[in-house]
Nucleic acid binder design. Structure first.
Length: 104
DNA sequence: TTCATGACGGGGA
DNA sequence: ATCCCCGCCATGA
């Protein structure tokens, strides 16, 4: 049986290059409408084990929510290299780049 | 079993 | 716009 964690991991792995998803959106799709916090934990514990494209996961405001400056800039650089344009220091046009995994 | 963690979300000041 | 606070809830020790 797939755990919530495995579902989240699966969803993140299906985010295409040049697209992003928010923590809340992922949690919702994985079965927990209020599971944004869990997604955060999963990124911590699973990005190491599964090598997830964590850089394609941002907060609901379309910003890089990470606090570590170095990592945040790295994430920004990776997103830019995928064609995503930043409208601010760490902000993007969320509606333009949000990934909608309707197709399974 | 309980308890702490957590890179969030949303609403209010 | 920024800052703060509270709610959410799966996971691991």
């Amino acid at each position: 049986m797939e755990s919530f964690t495995e579902r989240v991991i699966h969803i993140i792995q299906r985010i295409p290059s040049g697209k992003v998803m928010t923590y809340g959106q992922i949690g919702q799709l994985a079965g927990s409408p209020r599971g944004a916090r869990q997604v955060v934990r999963i990124l911590h514990s699973s990005s190491k084990k599964h090598g997830l494209p964590w850089h394609r996961v941002i907060n609901a405001k379309g910003e890089i929510g990470i606090k570590a400056e170095g990592a945040a800039e790295h994430q920004k650089a990776m997103l830019e290299s995928e064609g995503i344009m930043f409208t601010g220091r760490n902000t993007i046009d969320l509606e333009a780049y949000r990934h909608h995994p309707e197709i399974f």
